[in-house]
């Protein structure tokens, strides 16, 4: 529903979408130029989240279709990073042969995101750029300490996946790839049996460093740095979740329980 400040609510949908322009960018540079010119652009890759935006009255005046930009579809290893192009679909990415070896647990987690219909056209980039924990990509990528690589007119911009929520991105910026460090042999465990009430990703690597990312469908992920070698923070501190539906005491309880179970599954306790 579109909320009009001075009046009320209007139920918008794709059927109420005003006329708009379409650009099918052939290159990242072309996409950036279009973004620079646009007032209310929408970037189209998989498109699965776009109607959700129309339904709240968020109408673009131009669609910049990036599906044809080849480099956004690649999955490869670049030195010590697993690089996933922003337009890689959940299905092609999560079944990529590289995954199981470089990050045990990531494939299983990624394969559970969304459903088959969404997985086959929804992209990892679109998932995270929608800034909804409900879509889960942000939780996994924050746990994996992924860096988001944006193309901008003044060159590449890097940002930790967990920082996306508060980030003010340049108007002309395009998520190019998601870069996950793999030098320290990360392992991931993702607990989503309580979804959508609560999900939790736990990452740990060979150095003993780890990250615990906890989220509900309504609030952004909470990231807690874990260090196996330190005795000072053996268990996660309480979080003020402020979830509108589920109580904080409960969420902290399951957070602690899942943490212990994930420690066990990752062979840490």
């Amino acid at each position: 529903m579109l909320a009009i400040d001075s009046a009320g609510l209007v139920a918008t949908s794709f059927r109420t979408l005003p006329p708009l322009d379409v650009v099918r960018a052939e290159s990242v540079g072309e996409a950036l130029q279009e973004l620079r010119r646009a007032k209310r652009p929408a970037i189209l890759a998989g498109g699965t989240d776009l109607p959700a935006r129309f339904n709240v009255g968020d109408y673009p005046d131009i669609i910049i279709d990036i599906a044809k930009i080849k480099q956004l579809h690649a999955v490869f290893i670049d030195k010590s990073e697993l690089v996933i192009g922003a337009a890689v679909t959940h299905q092609s990415g999560s079944t990529h042969a590289l995954l199981p070896a470089v990050i045990p647990g990531f494939q299983e987690a990624w394969k559970k995101i969304a459903n088959m219909r969404i997985r086959m056209s929804g992209t990892l980039g679109g998932n995270i750029m929608s800034r909804r924990t409900r879509y889960e990509g942000a939780i996994l990528l924050a746990a994996l300490n992924a860096q988001l690589e944006f193309a901008t007119l003044s060159g590449p911009l890097f940002m930790a996946a967990g920082d996306l929520w508060d980030a003010e991105l340049p108007v002309a910026s395009l998520l190019q790839s998601i870069r996950i460090p793999i030098a320290t042999k990360p392992r991931l465990d993702y607990e989503r049996s309580l979804r959508p009430i609560f999900t939790q990703a736990f990452y740990v690597d060979d150095t003993g460093a780890g990250r615990l990312v906890s989220a509900t469908e309504f609030v952004r992920p909470h990231i807690w740095a874990f260090d196996r070698n330190s005795q000072s923070n053996p268990s996660p501190e309480e979080i003020d979740f402020q979830d509108p539906v589920t109580g904080t005491a409960y969420l902290n309880q399951v957070r602690a329980v899942f943490f212990m179970r994930q420690m066990t599954r990752l062979g840490l306790s």
Binding site: V22, L44, G47, P51, R117, M120
Partner: peptide
């Protein structure tokens, strides 16, 4: 009208997509 229910599913290049979430020009 939101890609959640899938009643508008069609196959594009043999992939199921919600037709409410897919532009005609695509």
């Amino acid at each position: 009208s939101r890609g959640a229910c899938g009643s508008c599913t069609v196959l594009v290049n043999n992939i199921p997509i919600a037709a409410c979430s897919y532009f005609a020009f695509q």
